[in-house]
Design a protein around this nucleic acid. Structure first.
Length: 346
DNA sequence: AAAACGGGGGG
DNA sequence: CCCCCAGTTTT
């Protein structure tokens, strides 16, 4: 039996029953694929359910407020996915009359849809023979064929894409793409896969050579940077606080947070008090400033560690531009802020 | 080609 | 502590 048919047979027996596997509606496939980018199934599942419930059609998603979409996305990370989802929904409704793009090339024009996602939707919803290359596909193919080309350089992508594209020619693309990914996720796992029960244990190059653990090869990422965040949690006389929406390019774009003072080294009371005194809504005589968390909260992201202090700033005045503390929970916030809000309990 | 972009879970 | 995850966009 050939490789493709072995994968498909394995899949038909071992596939998980997931909600997006009971439809080929491109809108639902798209939602699931965006949610699952760089995200494990277990983590993405509740978000998929929530999005399908709140936005049953692309029209519902298009007409929603960005903040309400970000709120539902809260905690999933890579928030550009949510912003791109919204922009693409509006594009489909206003430019395409609500008709979902139905080819790889047209799908690729959607914001947030790259080679992988365009291939996934085109194959699953429209039976187009275009191969997906995701982390699972890299892992299985690199091990089965013993390929040590690094997967995170363009040469590696081209090599694996061509290989997968060749394999998909003779089979049903929707089933094959899902089979190879599911096989990579469940059998050909990153860490200690059980090769004794693998249907390829007589034909896998890496298993024969004992190189399973070292494949696929990846060029290692640059070092993590440390940053020092100080959040000012303002408490006013009229029971309000201050939230700002993050602007610009960096992380958490368009999400909300308390006023942020970033320092280039761990801050102390004197450094923060100087900043506080210069704020236009602070009366120099009557505020109180205290550190909430004795030791830094370290929020770890892929490329940076945010060493964070929350400072409680109590004012003896009102805050007309503030947010009533009861409404704080309705804003989309990064997990770092969300955890604080939950702990502080206003 | 390399860096930026989140957060959770596993070993 | 390090690696991985149904990757894409920007620089």
């Amino acid at each position: 039996m050939n490789l493709q048919q072995t994968l498909i047979n394995w899949y038909l027996v071992n596939k998980r029953d997931l909600p997006w596997r009971n439809t080929t509606n491109p809108y639902y496939i798209w939602l699931s694929e965006i949610i699952l980018q760089q995200t494990q199934v277990a983590q993405g599942l509740p978000y998929y359910t929530s999005f399908v419930t709140n936005f049953p059609s692309v029209f519902d998603l298009a007409k929603a407020d960005e903040s309400s979409i970000l709120k539902l996305w809260q905690g999933l990370g890579y928030y550009s996915r949510a912003r791109n989802l919204h922009a693409s929904a509006q594009y489909i409704v206003s430019e395409l009359n609500g008709e979902f793009p139905n080819t790889y090339s047209e799908l690729l024009k959607l914001k947030g849809v790259g080679d992988y996602t365009a291939s996934a939707i085109a194959s699953i919803s429209f039976n187009e023979k275009t191969a997906v290359v995701d982390g699972n596909v890299y892992r299985f193919l690199s091990r089965f064929y013993g390929i040590d080309t690094p997967i995170n350089i363009s040469k590696g992508f081209k090599e694996f894409k061509a290989l997968a594209q060749d394999l998909i020619q003779s089979v049903d693309p929707a089933t094959f793409n899902q089979a190879i990914m599911e096989f990579g996720a469940r059998q050909c796992k990153p860490k200690s896969p059980d090769c004794t029960v693998c249907p390829f244990n007589q034909s896998c190059v890496a298993y024969a050579k004992g190189t399973i653990a070292s494949l696929p090869v990846k060029i290692k990422a640059s070092k993590v940077k440390k940053k020092y965040f100080n959040y000012l949690v303002v408490l006013s006389n009229d029971n309000k606080t201050l939230l700002e929406q993050r602007q610009g390019k960096g992380i958490w774009q368009n999400l909300y947070q308390f006023p942020l003072v970033e320092t280039d080294k761990p801050a102390n009371y004197d450094m923060i008090v100087d900043t506080v005194k210069s704020l236009d809504y602070v009366n120099e005589e009557t505020f109180e400033l205290s550190l909430y968390n004795t030791s830094d909260i370290v929020h770890k992201l892929s490329h940076q560690h945010l060493n964070t202090k929350f400072w409680i700033l109590t004012l003896n005045s009102n805050l007309p531009q503030g947010v009533p503390v009861q409404k704080v929970e309705s804003f989309p916030v990064p997990i770092l802020i969300g955890n604080f809000i939950e702990d502080f309990n206003f």
